[in-house]
Design a protein around this nucleic acid. Structure first.
Lengths: 375, 375
DNA sequence: GGCGCAATGATACTCGTATGTCAATTGAAA
DNA sequence: TTTCAATTGACATACGAGTATCATTGCGCC
């Protein structure tokens, strides 16, 4: 780092010399070109450079861009032409200092690879883009601490708004966000304890619905398989929904009715879980996976082993990826509009940043049971 | 927008009044508290606020943070305590103005949802995070124009470096990046015409290898199915690789040996393509998909129709998602280290930004043929 | 008592964009 | 010729962090 700093200082010294040369040379009209070229390579053009090149004052150029009505069309055109010629690109960091806006939105996702969160992030990005806003992205790996750090830097970078996944924030994160001057959207769940607003669906109700469906279908030994519930409100709510439906139906929820897999949920983690479940003394006749990938893995493993789904073992999932409907046995699962959550969250932010009050504090995008052959 | 501006002006006026009151009140010692509270809610704390609250001068506080050695440990502790108390978070936009760094890296991906680009982006993000750098993300939808716009705003936002996917940039994008003062990494392909550096693999050779494998396996009617080749060097190179291997083997490449599917490549697009191919007068005995998802879709459709893979139709893909090995017929495909490309690109950037010269201009992460049962 | 040193402070300025206030210059209309 | 508006410019200042330079204080030591 020290080396870098020193290099930087050297560069500045050099620049100062180069500029000194430039001004010396300016009147004589010699070598000007080579110095100019070097300058272009060495330093980015500023508004001031534009004004000099156009033979206008700084303020006029500024006005041409910010209040075009107050400037003669010819002048405006000249400014525009000069900007293109010297390749001026405004420094948005400087603008941000003055305007107190950055046109950047901070987004935290727990994971990106092969998950619905990629759809979600794409939805956010696509909605923000036409608005000239950019996405500052962080991947938290389901860790509230990493999320906290991300939020801190989002605030430091003057993000206009922040989008989080879930409601499992650290106390510090909540404190940071309560002081934060801008919209905060928590996503992928609904919850009355939102820091600011929320866009998601009722994880608990969704899991309960699917569980009820399995019960109504007549399955006797239902096991639920989900991710770690600590620091993950979605997982916790889904498990809770399972318990809700089971108890409501008078069913027994034993300790071994709830199985946990390690995050991140992969397609590979499905097989060993089913294998283990089927080896039990009283194996389940239905497995409800609270994530889609392990469900796929489980289904494909069953298929490869000649275990018939759903006759020998019913499998249902949670997420409904596009693959789910195309599997050897099309999968019964909970359809979540991942992309829509992103779009709605971004949409809401944009409206609020434009000054409109948000119509709803908690936007429920709903879910849907995709009932297919696997359960 | 006009409304917003006016509101902002109003807010500033209000703030000015509030501050005026604060200074008026300061000496008299009345109502100070309520005004203070309002101020905390209205405005974020600056270094100056820290210095006031700590009873120190601005410079001392600055030194405590930037050159801790020159400040007494007690003073340092006091500064730290005050920072936590009033919740000071530095304004990185202001710092960026002075330091000419932003600690943000701009990344453009063509698509994020259900693709290896999500792994790639996660790889980049995870590698940058420990370094205190954040990812500015844009999704280009395979459009060079959207990419150009993204690059422009990355530069405007003072990104320290830029990561692109592919080599199909507009002329303007190339010009922008040549002037750009920072590392530029093009990814997902190797090519001697890199703007700056590249991290990827040889798409052409990979496709040629797989084609050669299919030829050696004895398939007579091989068809390749890829995405649009315009504005997509990866697609174009892969198709070219197919042609290379075919001609090298003395095979005929007819017009109908190359089929194009519309981007984005989805799992759903696989079925109709195979269906159409099998309806030909002389149907192919092997189909080489240049993207993984359509290959999955094709394979699952064949399976659902009782078409045996590879006996009746061999299928190979490109990408090797984790699903590929678990399909009813495990799929022969080209394995691409998507995540690694992201990690390497980020790694290289970090080193260069720290001042080390990059050891390699073009980093080839390679590929691998995953030979399984489907072809 | 004089010296050096550590710690702190005051002042002025930079970065690039943006605005508020006033002044100067035009040309056209009254 | 006077008056007015449109256009442009000069100057100062703000935004928040940071540095360079010089000044001041207090302490321990010879």
């Amino acid at each position: 780092m020290i080396l870098v700093c020193q290099l930087k200082i050297l560069a500045q010294v050099f620049l100062a010399i180069a500029q000194g040369l430039a001004s010396l040379v300016e009147s004589s009209g010699v070598i000007k070109d080579t110095v100019m070229q070097r300058e272009i390579r060495e330093k980015k053009a500023t508004l001031k450079d534009v004004s000099k090149a156009a033979g206008l004052s700084l303020i006029t150029v500024s006005r041409a861009l910010r209040q075009p009505d107050t400037v003669h069309p010819d002048t405006r055109a000249k400014v525009q032409k000069t900007i293109e010629e010297i390749g001026y690109i405004p420094n948005l960091a400087a603008r941000s200092l003055v305007s107190q806006r950055s046109d950047m939105i901070g987004v935290v996702v727990p994971i990106l690879a092969s998950s619905l969160f990629a759809d979600f992030a794409e939805g956010v990005s696509k909605t923000l883009e036409p608005n000239g806003q950019r996405l500052l992205l962080a991947v938290s790996n389901w860790s509230p601490e990493i999320e906290e750090e991300a939020v801190r830097t989002f605030i430091a970078r003057q993000a206009d708004a922040i989008i989080l996944t879930g409601f499992s924030q650290t106390a510090t994160t909540r404190k940071l966000l309560e002081r934060f001057h801008g919209p905060v959207v928590q996503t992928w769940n609904t919850n009355e304890t939102a820091i600011d607003t929320a866009v998601g669906f009722d994880n608990r109700a969704a899991a309960a619905d699917m569980t009820r469906y399995l019960i109504d279908k007549g399955y006797q030994e239902i096991v639920v398989v989900g991710g770690a519930t600590s620091n993950n409100d979605q997982s916790a709510d889904r498990v809770q929904g399972f318990v809700d439906a089971m108890t409501a139906a008078g069913r027994d929820v034993r300790e071994d009715s709830i199985v946990e897999f390690p995050n991140p949920a992969t397609i590979e983690s499905g097989a060993p879980i089913v294998q283990e479940l089927l080896a039990r003394e009283t194996p389940p006749d239905a497995v409800f996976f609270l994530a889609e990938l392990p469900a796929h893995g489980a289904m494909l493993w069953c298929h490869s082993q000649g275990i018939r789904v759903p006759e020998q073992l019913a499998i249902s999932g949670f997420g409904d990826l596009s693959l789910s409907a195309l599997l050897p046995t099309p999968m019964t699962t909970v359809k979540i509009p991942g992309r829509e959550i992103g779009e709605q969250a971004a949409q809401q932010l944009i409206k609020r940043l434009e000054g409109h009050q948000p119509p709803t504090v908690v936007k429920n995008v709903g879910y849907q049971l995709s009932l297919r052959a696997s359960a």
